Amino acid sequence: MGSVRTNRYSIVSSEEDGMKLATMAVANGFGNGKSKVHTRQQCRSRFVKKDGHCNVQFINVGEKGQRYLADIFTTCVDIRWRWMLVIFCLAFVLSWLFFGCVFWLIALLHGDLDTDYKDDDDKSKVSKACVSEVNSFTAAFLFSIETQTTIGYGFRCVTDECPIAVFMVVFQSIVGCIIDAFIIGAVMAKMAKPKKRNETLVFSHNAVIAMRDGKLCLMWRVGNLRKSHLVEAHVRAQLLKSRITSEGEYIPLDQIDINVGFDSGIDRIFLVSPITIVHEIDEDSPLYDLSKQDIDNADFEIVVILEGMVEATAMTTQCRSSYLANEILWGHRYEPVLFEEKHYYKVDYSRFHKTYEVPNTPLCSARDLAEKKYILSNANSFCYENEVALTSKEEEEDSENGVPESTSTDSPPGIDLHNQASVPLEPRPLRRESEIGSRR
């Protein structure tokens, strides 16, 4: 089982795998120059863009038009607004034209077009017409509009002379109601789609790998820009990579689940303020055997998904993003964004995407760390350097704002901070800030 798991979770494809794949392509008759073999020097295209759209195009789909027309309502909801407006206008105009032609044909076959009612006051002739005051196609078209929109100006009306005319008036009224219901329903469904809710759900630009509770963890940050909550919010993550099976089958995008606390339930989050999602790199993680150097040379993509129900409509929305291997910062942490004021908490989104480097973060893999092949620094050293990194950030910001350097908390000259780390230190809580992250 261990060997199978290692093969499945191998992220960085070796040169031997690339040569094996190329040999397979030639042997199977696919070596026509169009096949692409992804190596370390040639990274694959992003499968999920940063804005959440999937970078996929469908080609050679059989009976595409028929399949889309069979699900016309979903098609109308998914198309762009400009095409929705075109369909909206065409549906009414074509129905008016169709029934206008029908009423014109009825008048033509009944002989109503030969009668001039402007110079004739004989009401008996008017009563013999199928539709009064309809003696041309324009008049028939206007009567069709008046019937379907129930305008009723009063000059044109159907008589009991022709039952077919009466039937067409009733039929057009029913068709008009159906068109109204369909168009209004599609427009309302399109307006109520929770897709735009994703514009106020954000992911951090970069993911980070750092120590948390004595273990290497992959972390990324999510935030909600609205005050309205995302009900039943939960997160998922998958690692996408290519691999070759033991039988020699090439899988271009193998999807591997990344555990973010599904078993323990901590994948469900209360997204009021930005939260750091934590994936513990343990023996079940696809990143277990990867060191910093392996991450730098790897070719994979981590897709992160945030799902929840919109509070206003109770409709489920899904926000997506992805991180390539070069977008994962090893040995970094996110800057705090949640600050405790006197009577409330304040979230500073200008710090949302910012990170700071944490010294002495192990550069080895989580496996080597678990097997004690890498000796961690003293816990006080880690905490102290973590505090120094934050303090230096604040000093830089104070210097930019014009604060005198004498007010900063610099260490005395001639003292090495790293050498001082081995000395037991008193706890130094942050002056006014605390970061709330997901705790395992």
Rank of each mutant, 00 (worst) to 15 (best):
F92D: 03
V231N: 04
E435P: 06
I209Y: 00
M211F: 06
C130G: 03
S124H: 15
E395R: 09
E433Y: 07
T355E: 01
F167I: 14
F99T: 00
K49S: 07
Q172A: 04
G331I: 01
V93N: 01
M24P: 13
D368T: 08
G308W: 04
V278H: 04
E335A: 06
N360Q: 11
S13K: 05
Y323V: 07
V12A: 15
E426D: 11
V61F: 07
R44K: 09
P362I: 02
Y384K: 05
E63L: 13
I305H: 07
D299K: 05
L240Q: 04
K118Q: 02
Y384C: 12
I106D: 01
G402K: 05
D257M: 09
D121M: 15
D410Q: 09
V222P: 00
S406Y: 08
T23E: 14
L239K: 01
V93Y: 02
I269P: 08
A237D: 03
K49P: 02
D267G: 06
Q57C: 08
V388L: 03
F88H: 08
V170I: 05
A379W: 05
G261H: 06
A186C: 10
K342E: 04
D180Y: 06
N360G: 11
I328C: 03
F300M: 06
I251M: 12
T39L: 07
V272F: 12
D257C: 11
A189F: 10
W330G: 00
Y250A: 15
A192P: 04
V131C: 01
C217N: 11
L105E: 01
S132F: 02
N386W: 03
D416I: 11
C177S: 12
F58V: 10
E146G: 06
K342T: 06
T39G: 11
G261W: 11
A370T: 08
V222Q: 02
V208W: 01
T355K: 01
C76N: 12
D71C: 08
F141V: 06
K190L: 09
N32F: 05
P336T: 07
F98S: 04
S144Y: 01
A370H: 07
D160L: 01
L417A: 11
D296T: 09
C130S: 02
E357N: 06
S434A: 12
F182A: 02
V202M: 11
D114F: 04
W96R: 00
Y117R: 01
G223E: 03
H418K: 12
D368R: 03
L338N: 03
L94H: 01
Y356V: 15
M211W: 04
V231Y: 11
S228W: 13
F141D: 00
L290V: 02
S124C: 05
E387T: 00
N326D: 08
I305C: 13
T355V: 10
E16W: 03
S14H: 06
H343N: 07
Q293E: 13
C157G: 06
R432H: 12
I59H: 14
F262I: 14
L113W: 02
N198V: 09
V278A: 04
F352G: 01
D284F: 09
N55T: 12
S246M: 08
R46K: 01
G31K: 09
D263E: 09
T316H: 13
E307S: 12
Y9D: 15
R226D: 11
T361G: 02
K193N: 06
I106C: 05
K393D: 14
S228N: 08
E161S: 05
V187E: 03
A25H: 14
A210C: 08
T115M: 10
F270V: 12
W330P: 01
Y117P: 01
Q148Y: 01
L253V: 12
D296G: 05
T159W: 02
E395M: 07
H53C: 09
V358A: 13
A366P: 03
V310Y: 09
L306D: 00
D348G: 02
S127G: 04
I305Y: 11
A27W: 04
S285Q: 01
D410A: 07
C157F: 11
L218F: 03
C89M: 14
H418V: 14
R44E: 14
K196L: 11
G248L: 04
L239M: 07
I87E: 15
M19W: 03
Y345P: 08
N326F: 03
F270P: 08
E199F: 06
V131T: 02
L105D: 01
G65M: 15
V56F: 14
K241Q: 10
Y374H: 04
S228Q: 13
S422E: 14
S10N: 08
H418A: 11
V235L: 04
S377V: 08
G152K: 04
Q66H: 13
W220M: 04
S381G: 12
Y356S: 15
K128G: 13
L425H: 06
V423E: 15
Q238C: 08
R212H: 12
V166I: 04
V304T: 09
P194C: 03
I183H: 08
K393I: 06
I179A: 05
L97S: 02
G214P: 00
K393C: 10
D71K: 14
Y250G: 15
A192V: 14
A207C: 09
A129D: 04
V272M: 15
K20M: 10
D51L: 03
R236E: 08
D121A: 15
F30M: 15
L369E: 01
L240K: 02
G248M: 07
S422P: 11
V347C: 12
F88A: 09
L105T: 05
S264P: 04
I251R: 15
S264V: 11
L369S: 03
A70G: 10
S285H: 00
V166D: 02
T200H: 14
D121S: 14
T407W: 09
F155H: 06
I295E: 00
K373R: 12
